[in-house]
């Protein structure tokens, strides 16, 4: 009954720094958790519209196209309704996939 007791694929932590609301994502970000991750990021923007949203993915081991969509949509919303956006900590396969679809610079502001 593995499919009953499977642990959640992704989790998140929120912390505040001067001018910044930082959401650290942990685990595997794919279609199965797309909705949940979108909710976490939207919530951070809504509660702290005056702070820049920083999404840390240093503890994310896998990111698929659904995950990329979530990040891009959060960026659009943070720019529109909040205090800006920045992605940090992308490495390994996560960074690779962001580079292939050519949004790494866009999301990190290093373009």
């Amino acid at each position: 009954m593995d499919n009953v007791s499977r642990p959640p694929q992704a989790s998140h932590e929120v912390e505040l720094a001067p001018g910044i609301v930082r959401v650290s994502l942990v685990g595997e970000i794919d279609m199965g958790v797309e909705g949940a991750v979108a909710g976490w990021l939207t919530e951070a923007i809504r509660t702290h519209p005056d702070r820049r949203l920083e999404v840390d993915v240093s503890r994310v081991g896998f990111l698929d196209s659904s995950g990329i969509r979530v990040l891009l949509q959060a960026q659009a919303r943070a720019v529109r309704e909040g205090g800006g956006f920045r992605l940090t900590g992308a490495q390994g396969t996560v960074r690779e996939v962001l580079e292939i679809v050519d949004v790494y610079g866009l999301l990190t502001g290093d373009a």
Partner: peptide, 10 residues
């Protein structure tokens, strides 16, 4: 050829 995916108007 590096260019962003579709849907973001880049």
């Amino acid at each position: 050829q590096r260019a962003p995916l579709l849907g973001i108007g880049h």
